[in-house]
Design a protein around this nucleic acid. Structure first.
Lengths: 140, 140
DNA sequence: CTCACTGCAAAGTGTTTGCAACGTT
DNA sequence: AACGTTGCAAACACTTTGCAGTGAG
């Protein structure tokens, strides 16, 4: 029993083939896919699988915090199985979303903000926007 | 002629009563309203105004960069007439969005990221999530 | 055996579009 | 007078829901 199966069971989620496939797909892919992308990539292996199943599955995985749901200004949400703190880098040309794991120290700002406003901060997101290397080269 | 009118004209946008009302509403309100909120708050003064007009207007204002459009994980977008760089602080309980103008130096990370990946970064967003002072007090 | 999950279709929600009437310039 | 804007209704895209049948535990 691999760790994906264990993670699902630990969160009281039944290990169905569809659910395991969607979860492994997210763990294996760093491209932060949308529901549509997941569905298209998996329907070869699961011809009867429906979009609704993908929606329901990512919602379950998100609820138990095995994956993160986010939106970078597009119509549809993206999903990410990397749950450690990291930033996203979005290319304005090709709309790709990549990861940046560099350390960004936010503690000072968080302290400042908490003292200033009485807010309790427990998370933050950082998104960078620009043009990726590939699009720069293609003058795209 | 006030500066709001000037800003619209400078961007070749006709100064209609609806457009001016929506733009001033955004300039006067720091609560980062959604289209729905703008519509509800203005329809007393403009009983015939339609949601479509609000959508079209914020799109025009966003296109000429008089306002910013963003999303903090809700179903609908929010709009902000503060165009200087600043962060958003989101309360997970009451879903309020407030501003943080504290200086956060990202230059080092941007350099690192640009060297690392060849990305040209020209903007970034920072969102903080937590519980606001009011909700903390209400144990809400 | 039970209850959660799947898959289909239908409904829901936020947003956009087509188009005629209107109003700013 | 010209052309961008408004406002209505219809269309659209993404997501959620209802429900009967299925299958993991």
């Amino acid at each position: 029993m691999n760790y994906l199966t264990e993670n699902l069971k630990a969160n009281k989620l039944k290990v169905t083939p569809q659910r395991l496939a969607i979860y492994s797909y997210l763990v294996d892919n760093c491209n932060h896919p949308t529901v549509e992308t997941i569905y298209n990539d998996l329907k070869n292996m699961f011809p009867t699988m429906s979009l609704a199943t993908v929606y329901k599955t990512v919602a379950s995985l998100r609820d138990v915090k095995l994956i993160k749901e986010f939106n970078v200004g597009e119509d549809s949400n993206r999903y990410d199985a990397k749950i450690e703190t990291h930033s996203h880098v979005i290319c304005k040309k090709c709309n790709s979303v990549s990861d940046y794991f560099g350390n960004i120290d936010m503690q000072e700002s968080i302290n400042d903000l908490e003292n200033l406003s009485g807010f309790d901060i427990d998370a933050y997101d950082i998104n960078f926007y620009g043009v990726c290397n590939k699009c720069k080269k293609q003058n795209f």
